[in-house]
Design a protein around this nucleic acid. Structure first.
Lengths: 351, 351
DNA sequence: TTGAAAGCGCTAACAT
DNA sequence: ATGTTAGCGCTTTCAA
C-alpha cells in the first residue's frame, strides 16, 4: 500500500463530504470546540485512517511561523555540546518545536552564512552557542527581527538575551583549590581572546590571584590558538619551556587540559606529582582517564533548557523590552590531576 | 534598522517595477538565462541590498520538496553518533539540504512517533540509525513513500537501503586476536537481541569460535538489557558469577565494555592481567583511559557520508528499483585491555 | 525577454 | 455549527 501522494485536508473533506475549513477546525485543538462533537470524531477517525499529516510548509506559509528554531554550535565533536543540545530539545519538544543544527566551525564567517541559511529556512528564533566577543550574527538577527539567545558564550554588546555560566566563579574555585593545595606558581593556558569565555576566564584568573596578593607575571600565561587538544598541547609546550618552576596550571577548557597532559609527558613530567592540572567543563568520561582531571563542572543540560525557554518566551511575546541574562553556577569536581604541593627544596621566598 | 517583515519577491518586484515572475527567474540559477543580463544584474543587486531571502515554506509548498531530511539516532550522548551526524551533514551541505535530528531513546514507539513528526515536517527522506530487527518505521516510510536509509543497524526484511559495517568481520578480528593471545575461555556480553548489531555480533562470536573448534557454552554468554554502561556492568556481574575461569571477554560495544571494567573491579579482578576485554566502536578518548580499551574501530564519519549520498540518490530518482547495501570494513585497534594469557596452573584439558 | 495568472495546502475572517 | 473565500510567497505554464 504505497501512497505516492500525501493526504491533504481536501482529500479528507471530499471523503467526508464536508468543507476543508470544517476539517481544519475539527483537527485543531483550539477551534474544534466550535464543531459538533460528532463531526470532530468522524473527521479525526478518517484522518487517522487515511494517514493525514499536516503539511508544515503550508502551515508555515499561512501562519508565518515554522515552529522551528536554529541552533549554532562550534562543533558537534566537542563533547560539551551534546548535552546542551539535548537540553534545548527537551523543552522544544514540549512546545511542538523542532530544531535545525548548524556549525560555526569556530569561524565567524561560517556562522554568519549558516544563520542566513537558517533565516531562509524561516526559523522562528536562533540559539547561538558559538559567539565571538564581537559578532556580526547579533546584528544580523537584530536587523531581520529574529529572536536570538546566546548560550555559553557572550558578546561584548549588552543588548542580547544570554544564558551563561559564572565563569569567573568557576575559575575562582579552581584557583582557590590550587592555593589550598599550597601552589603559588600557577600558570594559565588561555583560549583565543576573541572568544568571550577565554577572555573572561583569563581575567578571572589574574583577578583571583591578585585578590590573594599574587601577581601573575606575563610568562605565566600562554594563549592557545583554539579551544582544542592540539592547541593546548602546543601552548603547554611553550609554557613549560618558559616556566620550569611552575607547579600548577589551569586550562581554559578540558580539551586544552588534555593537550597539557600530552605536553607534560613529552617533557618527562608527571601529573599531579610534578604539576597539577585543572580543566573547565567536565566533559564526559573523565573519571575513566589515567589521570582523572580535576575540572570545573557546568550544567550543560540545564543551560540548554534555560536558553530554549528564554527563546520561546521571546518568540511568543516578540516585543524586546529588556534583555535577560541567566547566570548558572558551576561546581568544582576534584579528581586526581591536582595534588598538594610537595615541599621540595625551598627556592623562592614566601611560605 | 529593524525590519519586522521579511522581504518578498513582490517587494523586490514593486521596487524594480517588474513582475514577480521575472524576479523569480532572475534569482534562479536555472532560469536566469532567459532573462536579459541587465535585468538579472539589477534584480540580484536589489535582492542583496534589501536583504531578500527565499521563503523556504513557500518554496516547499510550491515545489513539493523541503530540501530537508530527518535523522533518527538512539541518543546524542552516545559518542558514536556525533561523527555519523557530521558525515551526513557534510554531504547534505553540498546539496543545499538541511537535517532535522530526532531521538529514538532506544524505543521503537518513540522512533515511530518521531518519524511521523518528521514526515509532517515534510522531510524528503529519512536516515534511521536506530532500527530494531523488526521495525514499524520501515513500513511507515514505505507506506508514505518516503525514502529511507538505515545506518549502522539493519532490519530483518531485506528490501531497504542500508549502510552498515561488517560486524561479523569485526567480531572475527576480536576473537582471532584473543585466540592469538592464547585465550580459550572467552565470554561474550551481548546487547539486546532485538537490535540487529547485538544479534549479528553474538552470532559472529559463536560462529568464529566454532570455526576454531571451540564450542561456546551457554553460560559464557550474557545478554545486557541495553547497549549502555550500566547494563554492561550488570551483565558482567552475572557473567563473572558464573564464569570464574574465563580469561577474556568481548563486549557488544564500548559502553558495555566500560561497564565490564566496573564489574571487574568490584570482583577485585584486574584488566588485562586477570581478564582481557575487547569493545566495539572505538569511541573517542579511549587512548586516555586508565586501561585503554582494545576495540573494533568503525568508520563513523564515512558511514554518515555514504548514507547521505545513498538517500540523496533515492530522493532524486524516486523509483525504488533495487535496494542497495553499502558494507564498510572495520579495523581492530589493539590497546592495553588485552594481554597474552598467563600460563597459570593448568586446569582443563586442551593446550 | 517579460507579464499574467494559477495553484501548492492551510487557516481565519466573514458569511450563513 | 458549517460553508465560502481569500491569501500567505513562490514557481511555472501560457500568452504576449
Amino acid at each position: 500500500m504505497v501512497q505516492r501522494k500525501r493526504v491533504t485536508l481536501r482529500d479528507l473533506a471530499e471523503h467526508l463530504n464536508i468543507n476543508t475549513s470544517t476539517v481544519s477546525r475539527a483537527l485543531s485543538e483550539k477551534s474544534s470546540e466550535m464543531i459538533s462533537p460528532d463531526v470532530v470524531k468522524r473527521v479525526r477517525k478518517a484522518a487517522q485512517e487515511m494517514g493525514y499529516k499536516q503539511n508544515a510548509a503550508a502551515y508555515a506559509l499561512k501562519m508565518g511561523s515554522t515552529k522551528t528554531i536554529g541552533m549554532i554550535i562550534p562543533d558537534l565533536m566537542n563533547p560539551v555540546f551534546p548535552p546542551i543540545i539535548r537540553g534545548i530539545q527537551s523543552v522544544l519538544d514540549q512546545y511542538g518545536y523542532t530544531a535545525f543544527l548548524a556549525y560555526s566551525e569556530n569561524n565567524e564567517g561560517t556562522a554568519h552564512t549558516e544563520v542566513e541559511r537558517l533565516i531562509s529556512r524561516g526559523v522562528d528564533g536562533i540559539i547561538y552557542a558559538a559567539a565571538f566577543r564581537t559578532d556580526s550574527v547579533v546584528d544580523l538577527c537584530k536587523s531581520q527581527g529574529i529572536p536570538l539567545v546566546l548560550v555559553n558564550r557572550v558578546v561584548d554588546q549588552g543588548d542580547v538575551d544570554t544564558v551563561k555560566v559564572d565563569d569567573s566563579l568557576g575559575i575562582k574555585m579552581a584557583v582557590d583549590h590550587l592555593l589550598d593545595l599550597g601552589h603559588r606558581k600557577i600558570g594559565f593556558i588561555a583560549g583565543p581572546k576573541n572568544i568571550s569565555v577565554s577572555y573572561i576566564r583569563l581575567r578571572a584568573f589574574t583577578r583571583t590571584m591578585a585578590e590573594h596578593d599574587l601577581e601573575v607575571e606575563p610568562h605565566r600565561i600562554v594563549e592557545a590558538h583554539a579551544l582544542s587538544e592540539a592547541a593546548g598541547e602546543q601552548a603547554m609546550s611553550v609554557f613549560l619551556g618558559q616556566n620550569p618552576d611552575a607547579t600548577a596550571i589551569i586550562a581554559s577548557n578540558d580539551l586544552i587540559a588534555l593537550g597539557c597532559f600530552t605536553a607534560l609527558k613529552q617533557f618527562g613530567y608527571t601529573c599531579p606529582k610534578r604539576m597539577s592540572i585543572v580543566g573547565f567543563n567536565n566533559m564526559p568520561y573523565l573519571d575513566w582517564f589515567a589521570t582523572p582531571l580535576t575540572t570545573v563542572s557546568i550544567p550543560h543540560f540545564q543551560m540548554g533548557e534555560r536558553s530554549a525557554e528564554l527563546l520561546l518566551k521571546r518568540i511568543k511575546a516578540d516585543n524586546v523590552d529588556y534583555n535577560e541574562e541567566v547566570l548558572l553556577k558551576p561546581k568544582l569536581v576534584i579528581r586526581k590531576s591536582t595534588a598538594p604541593l610537595i615541599a621540595s627544596k625551598k627556592k623562592s621566598g614566601s611560605t
